[in-house]
Write a protein that binds this DNA or RNA. Structure first.
Lengths: 227, 227
DNA sequence: GCGCTGTATCTGGCATACAATATACCAGAA
DNA sequence: TTCTGGTATATTGTATGCCAGATACAGCGC
């Protein structure tokens, strides 16, 4: 009996949750600002048919996504993928700054040295030379870095709250990281943040994290006029 | 035609939204820590019967509430009102501190003098003498004060994010404000915060707001051992 | 007396059916 | 030709029915 490597049956992945994840992933993988207006519409029947389920779990998933801000519902008209305005994107970054800054405080107070050191490893495979050639991978590492700070805070409510808005930040960073020389400044900022955390300088770490995020907000404000 | 004062028909209050608001209000009005364990259970059919609707809008409302953290669902078992542990309550307060602290920065940067002055009015009807006799009203004013700082930030994403966790903070403050001499310290803290905002001292305001919230966290940590 | 197994019943999850509303199209009049 | 009003169609919102999993309990074996 004990010899059988039986994985527990996952009964917690109900169809509605799977639908939620599928739609969420599909939206995340889409560049919302390059698709046609008509593709923003989410037809319940069509989704149900394509995913091979009935409309009920589709609707539950859409309710979840609406709460998360990824889709909006117009009563009696249907659900639409939410395309955030420039002002909203800036607000999202501000909230992110607030959360990550608090996370930095918690990390400098509580996290182990080893945990903080793991932040360095995220960028270990990059050196200045090849940086420009691997912008996509760097962009991923960039996001992982910020998500990891939240994670290392050990504050679950903070992590869940941040998760809800991280998805919006993600699309911003992917688009902006290649612009001008942001990635160079970015990596310098990250190193300073790590150093502040290692020095357990709570105030400095909190300020650096906040300023780093708000610099992105200022950048979006100044540059992305097509939103 | 133009002479008729016609209000727009509100078609946005679907049954499922009404159900959501009804259950939310009912949970908010309940002291979760004084009711019987069995009353935490939310039976779909019973709710549907009592509200006079079918189970479908009930389920959509429960999905919303679950996302908000007010209820938890156990697969195939049902929905239960979520009772937060002490550790979770402290985490909620930490997140609140992060958000309100950022809001204080925005207020000191952007809000009009008149708007900041409105913060004083919230406490205008209280003086030191009668404070102890009106703890409930003061507790309400207290919550309005903090919610108003968020509101004056003018950041909608911040407000929505905070709304999601304010409901958890609410129950904490109601319980703790009467303990020892917290309300006296509280009103002094509030005045200092207002003064910092009026002086447009962003750093000071942010720090005072954060410390005020974290003092509550420390208080909960030290005192509420029955959670 | 204790523990396991089978069964009845209950409840949530999903599918489907029905009702209500919005949109599109078409006909007729100005 | 253009605008208005009616009707058909499509789609959302809600209700209901069915099924599978979970719990409780009775019966059986040890």
């Amino acid at each position: 009996m004990a010899g059988l490597a039986l994985a527990a049956i996952r009964s917690d992945v109900s169809i509605s949750v799977q639908v939620y994840e599928a739609i969420r992933a599909a939206i995340t993988a889409t560049n919302l600002y390059e698709i046609d207006e008509s593709d923003l519409r989410l037809d319940e029947r069509e989704l149900a048919a394509r995913l091979g389920v009935s409309r009920t779990p589709i609707r539950e998933a859409l309710v979840r996504l609406e709460h998360e801000g990824l889709v909006t519902s117009v009563p009696r008209r249907g659900y639409y993928i939410a395309r955030k305005s420039k002002a909203e994107l800036i607000e999202v970054i501000i909230v992110w700054a607030a959360l990550e800054s608090m996370a930095a405080r918690l990390v400098s107070q509580r996290a182990s040295d080893a945990a903080i050191a793991s932040l360095r490893e995220i960028f270990a495979t990059f050196d200045g030379e090849k940086l420009a050639a691997h912008i996509d991978e760097y962009s991923d590492a960039n996001l992982r870095f910020h998500a990891r700070i939240i994670e290392l805070s050990g504050c679950d409510v903070l992590r869940r709250t941040a998760d809800g808005i991280l998805i919006h930040v993600r699309s911003i960073r992917h688009r902006t990281i290649g612009e001008d020389h942001r990635f160079e400044r970015s990596i310098v900022d990250h190193m300073h943040i790590i150093e502040a955390l290692e020095a357990r300088d709570e105030e400095l770490a909190a300020r650096l994290v906040r300023d780093h995020a708000l610099a992105l907000a200022a950048h979006v404000d100044a540059n992305d006029n097509d939103l």
